[in-house]
Design a protein around this nucleic acid. Structure first.
Lengths: 209, 209
DNA sequence: TTGTGTGAATCCCTTCACAGCG
DNA sequence: CGCTGTGAAGGGATTCACACAA
């Protein structure tokens, strides 16, 4: 029940949630930490330790009720409600994201798309009219946006981040290949495809030698 | 110079490479571990420790020669050569990736795109004709492909992975939201946007409470 | 008896601090 | 003197092992 949760635990919680949804779909009533660990590439002890940070959700000798635990994990991850998201940058990545079906079903609703390219402004993507990037702060306040996805070139990313922070945003998903500078209360998650590829070529190169 | 490199070190090496390229662009001749740490959100000791796993690249009292160290890091990460990549799945994410400019400039060359949708087969994306997904193994052998990007629905991903592995692939970049089962000698990097978003909503939810 | 919840032990990564080389 | 390279210390996360509840 304490604080200071390792980042790795959060990632695993996401996995547990996926697995619990699977178990529920398969009609399971209860799961053990053992079963939960089997999917997800971890250990039973790890599952129990992860969950123990947030409470005691299981019954000794029995395991966890699937629906109950799923609800708990959803609450822990903060996905027991809908998050309103803005997408800045309607380029290649941006447009792939804007009609990504998983988002809506997972509780993330894209309610605004912005871009600085005059050719794109006014066009409609996934039912949303693309607005000028300058209107970011306005859009955040108008639409109650809480998360911003930055999918603009590296040169523009820091500026977008600062505007978002100024408008009160506390979470940024960043696709630009730079380290954004933000105040400590703002969370940034970076997605860098090149880094992932480099991890692969490293693994192959090292192993093969 | 030993083995067993932590995954976090690899990620930082990618960052160092980006920073070194910046330093080079700015005309710097040498860098200290201190300067390298400043960009990249880490410490000087960490930089030195990371590099020390692979050799002694610096000069005491002086620092590192920028161009020299960049070459070394490129070699460590295995990006001192071109990697031939196949993209399986020409859907939304796939099409965003296929003409992502950074890939080519970073040493990853997409030489094949495959899809199982008959409407897409035969079309051209970024100068490459989309082939039937069934031809994956053939394509891998014909074109000397070493890395496969899986951007197909979760239900098809494991099958694609198995075909790729069978054809000798040792590195997979996986966008499907499932844990691929592969032999230990095969590396998989997962990119899960939902997980990243959940990490953000977790951070905001916990902090705000 | 079964399987959770949890202190204790272990392991691994990061940080410290300094010897040593240019 | 300045800064690297590295053994030693420190801190966190994972794993172990078992008391305990159902």
């Amino acid at each position: 029940m304490n604080r200071r949760i390792p980042e790795s635990t959060v990632r695993r919680l996401s996995h547990y949630l996926r697995s619990l949804e699977d178990f529920e779909r398969e009609g399971g009533e209860t799961v053990s930490s053992e079963e939960l660990a089997a999917r997800g590439q971890t250990t039973a002890a790890q599952v129990r330790k992860d969950l123990s940070h947030f409470g005691s959700f299981g019954k000794r000798g029995l395991g966890y009720r699937v629906d109950e635990l799923r609800a708990h994990v959803e609450q822990i991850l903060g996905v027991d409600r809908v998050w309103r998201v803005a997408l800045v940058g309607a380029g290649r990545i941006g447009s792939a994201l804007s009609d990504y079906p998983d988002f809506a079903t997972r509780g993330y609703e894209c309610v605004a798309i912005l871009d600085s390219d005059p050719d794109k402004i006014g066009r409609v993507r996934g039912g949303i009219r693309i607005r000028p990037a300058k209107e970011l702060q306005e859009a955040i306040r108008e639409l109650g946006i809480e998360l911003v996805i930055i999918a603009v070139p590296a040169s523009a990313a820091q500026d977008v981040a600062e505007q978002a922070v100024q408008a009160g945003i506390r979470g940024i998903l960043n696709f630009a290949p730079i380290r954004l500078k933000v105040p400590p209360e703002v969370s940034v998650e970076d997605v860098s495809l090149v880094m992932e590829l480099e991890a692969l070529s490293f693994a192959i190169t090292q192993h093969g030698s």
